[in-house]
Computed example of a mutant assay.
Amino acid sequence: MEKVIFNQLKEFRKTLHQNPELSGEEKETAARVANFFEKIKPDLTINKLGGHGVAFVFEGKEKGMTTLIRCELDALPIVENNNIKHQSNVSGVSHLCGHDGHMAIVAGLGLQLKDHRPSKGRVVLLFQPSEETGKGAESVIKDNKFLKIKPDYAFALHNLPGYDKNQIVMKKGAFAAASVGMIIKLKGRNAHASHPEAGNSPAEAMSKIIVALQKLPDAMKKFTMITVIHAKLGEVAFGTTPGDATVMATLRAYETDTRDLLVTYAEKLCSQISKEYGLEISFEYVEGFDATHNSEETWEYGNEAAKKLKLKTKHIRIPFRWSEDFGHFSNHTKTLLFGLGAGKKQPQLHENNYDFPDDIIPTGVKMFEEIINQIHR
């Protein structure tokens, strides 16, 4: 990559890092991206896609496949603790997942496509909103404007601390887990703290639910995990026996259908416990992520690209436990999500001293270039 272009992408990345926006609020980030692409002059720009999403279409002269390359617009509600000049200017919000770097990579791909349109078919560069909440990909897919760019293939990458810089991490089939946030609400009956027998406290049932949920995966044949992340019993009132409780947990599995089965079992278990104690129970679900599934065909394109670039590649056997909103695309088209090593000493994703390493930007751009060359040239 030319030094001038690399410097341009680094500056763009740092500007994005300084001006992060939360999921669903990425208006200014989308505007910065659109401004960057004005000089590139794509054949079609689609704004407000699934929220603040923006897509840029590059048409080939001949008919062919449609390939989507996706990155993320949103940042995290975490206070950054970094001693860098381009530290976040927004209190309590920061790009600690590297979405700023992913955007810089796809912007670099846009610069490449400016003078080297696909020969056949078309390439769509999607800057997707709300990845962190698991809502963005689904919103994009449900948007009627998405019909204009419905892809035959979709590709994305995620930087991975703990792996050598520029190393490519690949896997066929399930790559990142399915997960969902479960909110369990128990309702009993308040009473005076001096007469607890007059009420019906959910305290004991809540305690049993917390323990039972985290043991439930032991009974599953396939990998599952339940992490209780929050619990609340009544209010801080020393004269009152509590009448309600809330337990929140994250349920995850390597495949979407296994996660859904885990949800069914978890509901039955909690309902059984609440019934024993004569409590009412209700369930809510938030931040649902489907499993990201790499097809054999897209995996071949990615693997061939890494070979041609002579990049060190690690083929993993076990999927990652974390979830990625890109999994929603796996339900609609052939997808590939691959990892891009961010350095063995790099702080982990979502840690408050994480900062995307700029020197892996060229590798990300080249990987996507080589994938496009196989499909569209």
Rank of each mutant, 00 (worst) to 15 (best):
R377Q: 13
F6I: 11
A266D: 08
T313N: 09
A34G: 04
G108L: 04
A205Y: 09
G162Q: 08
A203H: 09
D74Y: 12
E25A: 12
L125E: 11
E11I: 06
A198V: 03
L68K: 07
V123F: 13
M65Q: 13
E280S: 11
I209S: 05
S23W: 03
F283L: 08
K275E: 13
V123S: 12
I226E: 07
V54Y: 09
L157E: 08
S274R: 10
I375R: 11
V263D: 01
G188T: 03
V90Q: 10
P362T: 05
R32E: 12
I5G: 04
E28Q: 14
T298K: 12
D359F: 04
F238M: 05
K344G: 01
N7Y: 11
S91Y: 12
R321E: 14
L279Y: 08
A104V: 01
L311I: 02
T258I: 15
Y285C: 06
E204V: 14
Q87K: 15
G341A: 04
I372P: 00
K27G: 01
L261F: 14
E267L: 06
E28G: 00
E59G: 02
K187Y: 00
N331F: 06
N373S: 13
N35G: 05
A31K: 15
W322H: 14
C97H: 05
H315R: 11
E370R: 13
P20Q: 07
E59L: 10
G101I: 02
C97K: 00
T250D: 14
I184P: 05
Q214D: 10
K148N: 11
A178N: 04
F223I: 00
S323I: 01
G121I: 03
I361R: 09
K14L: 06
H95I: 03
A245M: 07
A231Y: 13
L68T: 01
R122G: 04
G327H: 14
D257W: 08
S274P: 04
E300Q: 14
A31H: 09
K63V: 00
P357C: 05
K120T: 02
N166K: 14
K135G: 02
H95N: 08
M220Y: 13
E235W: 00
N166F: 03
H52I: 09
H52E: 15
L44C: 02
I78P: 02
F320P: 04
Q112L: 11
D260Y: 02
K312W: 00
G51D: 06
V79A: 10
A174F: 07
Y354S: 05
R32I: 08
L309M: 12
E25W: 05
H102F: 00
G327N: 14
I210T: 11
Y277K: 03
D325C: 12
F127E: 11
F175T: 15
E276Q: 15
H376S: 10
K366N: 14
L233T: 09
G188R: 03
K334V: 00
K268F: 10
E324A: 12
Y254W: 12
M225G: 02
Q272M: 14
N47P: 00
H293V: 15
S179H: 07
L186Y: 04
W299Y: 15
R117M: 03
R252Y: 05
D244E: 15
I375C: 07
H86N: 13
P129T: 06
V180Y: 00
L349K: 05
V90R: 04
A203D: 13
E38C: 06
